[in-house]
Design a protein around this nucleic acid. Sequence first.
RNA 1: GGGCACGUAGAUCAGCGGAAGAUCGCUGCUUUCGCAAAGCAGAGGUCGGGGGUUCAAAUCCCCCCGUGUCCA
Length: 865
Amino acid sequence: MDDAEYDLPFFHQQGFHRRTCVVCGHAFWTLGDHDRCQEAPCREYGFIGSPIFARPYSLHDMRETFLGFFEGRGHTRIRRYPTVARWRNDVFFTQASIYDFQPWVTSGAIPPPANPLTISQPVVRFIDLEEVGRSGRHFTLFEMMAHHAFNRPDHEVYFKNRTTELCHELYVEQLGTDPRSLTYKEEVWEGGGNLGPSLSVGAAGLEVATLVFMEYVRDGERLKPMPLTVVDTGYGLERMVWASHGTKTAYEPVFGEQYEELRRTFPPREAAILIDHARALNFLLTDGVVPSNSKEGYFARLLLRRSLRILSRAPEGPDVHAIFERAGREIARDFPEVGAHRDDLRRVIEAEVERYRESIERARQTIRRAEERARGAGDHITSDQLLEWYDSLGVPPDLAVEELKEPPPIPPDFYALVAARHENEAPANDYAEPRQGLPDVPAGVPATEALYYADPYTVTFEAHVVWTDGPFVVLDRTYFYPTGGGQVHDVGHLGDLAVVDVERHGPYILHRLERPAPFHGGDRVHGRIDAVRRTQLMQHHTATHLMNGTLREVLGPHVWQAGAYKGPEFARIDVTHFRPLSPEELRTINRRVNQLVREDRPVKSYFEPRTEAERRFGFTLYQGGAVPGKDLRIVEIQGFDVEACGGTHCTHTSEVGAIDILEVERIQDGIVRVTYAAGERALEIREQHELILREESKRLGVPVTDLAKGVDRLLAEVESSRKADRERDRSRIERAASELLKSDRVERVGPITLIAAQPENYERSELMNLSRILSQAPGTVVVLATERDDRGTLFVGSTAPGISAVEILKSAQAAFDGKGGGNPASATAVGDTGPALREAFRQAHAAARHLAREPGATAQGPTDS
RNA sequence: GGGCACGUAGAUCAGCGGAAGAUCGCUGCUUUCGCAAAGCAGAGGUCGGGGGUUCAAAUCCCCCCGUGUCCA
């Protein structure tokens, strides 16, 4: 980055000079006479015991001071975004305030909610989890204070100079920092293909702000200026509060009294972890994360289980709910939504605590059994086993060691070894790929006016072609709905040609025709939408909002939409929930959702300024993911459900007709999927089902109401006939056995009873059973041969301990080219038929007779074996 | 999203290429005035589903389905 990037008029006006840090080598600007930048590790902390601000601040005071300062300087205060970044698929959590505006605002696709703006954004970072409680300054969740400006060529708000000036003014004039103690270190920021200069602001060893200027796009080796430049700043609120107190760690002023109290029971590190995790969980659960074994849910589980593990070491201490709720009440003073559904969150935590208990109990059993087995084998549990248990059973190594009589040592680098087990795994997914295969519309083509928002009922219209490319057509205005928001696209006709697909592409709506478009720019075309399909899509979409609201109502406000699909055949919604739905819950949901249909509530769709909509309805608006932009399209089912949504909807709930739940499944831990049909499709499916019921009841000859009984009867019949088959086989074999036992096939050879026979057409398993019956008495050797399906089978069974069935078999196998083997008790080989088989049988018989005469042959073996 | 582990009798699990098992529970009998308990006997299994390898698969391989867990 060019030095000139940092050479700001502000620095010169104020009399800053540029130095180079003797430690890190970075250039920095200062009014003082430092030879190094004022950030650790280049210099040690200097604010402990001597705060750098004029007075101590609480979190609340500092937040208000910051936001007020920027409001006083032309910024609009924006509400926080959820800590779960549902609007992005490259990350789970909001890790910086700028995440709120990526990718739509920062790419220029959608205008920011305000410009410039200021915000306090709680952010979650798991990268430093191990440092929490240890370093005295790390948190899983912290508030990133920020002021942002988005500059377009035609509208410059402010950039580097003003940003730096504002920052300096905040610290010096508002907070009373000695201007000579501040250093502005030159750095380069890079991320997501963009980069730009940044200034890291240090004071007394602390990095008190980062000022990032997103300015360039990397284009190979060259840098291209961005059409939209962005001021991205970050000020750690907890850090600022800490610096205002100058305490030993940041935890005292941030965690306050609760920290003092917990420290009476727990060491400082554990007390800090407990509160830190409780704070983060309060935000995460409020924002709709349900603890689970994958994705964002796992991080919530991790925090909770770490806390439970600590708490289990102090059984007399407070329980997890007490700590969680205490922390929640503290947060609710400034973020009321966090305290709003405490009972519901309590249930979520209870369910998770229960699962943890079960999981630990299971693990304990496994450990005990494994050790018994190992000891039985004269072996012991290895450190490697501890690793395996942690990975596959979730047993913390210290717990495993507690449980073992002879524990192995826990490797000092245990968690590094765990990480090593996972290092060859696929990396996390990236930004969403832009939709493939759509042509780029050249600049200058006017944006498509989307008419379906205002009027979802019109299905025929006139419009002008503004651009075409092969089968793709862009009109000046359209009623065709493009795939989006989980709703599939319309189909229909433009002129005589079928529209097979409709996609949104930037500001354009692309109609894809069945074949290349014969249109030219300026042509007037007649559009006709498949009204039946559109109506069905509208019914499914409105049904989905009804279902979503009902699920929240019945299951609790922890329920958030985690995905949805509205097609012409059926619709489905995935929601966060901590256990499968019970039949009673399902019934309640079914009743309620259809009641709402019958109530014929008005459904209003309208645009509203974002800040206003958020103020009125809160974050549950964003069920389909956060929608940036100044104005939101609101779909409001009167008195029931409000969501930001771009889909086509019925205007009254009765138009949905009816909703039939088709299927409920747990698609993953923490996510429940409900599939249903509405309107005409609900009727169709109901008719299909009824037809099936009627036909099947006719087939079974029972009334529909007795179908279950009929099926039970049928299954019982199947079962008993299978049993009868088995019984018949058994008695046939038993008969054969008793005939054999009476025949001259039985001979006594010394202490051994030898039975050799060649029954006809037996299966291998039948031979085995026959032999089993024949050799019930100990000291019996059985040799059997049979032919079936052009294969000869030779079977030897032995209950004489000294005589090995497999040995006898081996001696005869070659005679009929038999393949097989076995053990001393039983052996089988399959090979040729005819004379070869008879020869093998003869050899086996002879070998058995020979072995029986050997001195080692006994009828009774050692009884203890 | 990926790795690993696990799905065997009503329950908890063993077996991990050669003739499906243990414990508890269940049923019956013995014993008892009755209960508990004990003893004896018995019922209960398409070894999650589907392909494959093999003379032979609960066991090995592949694909599904389900559960648990760890990591991103």
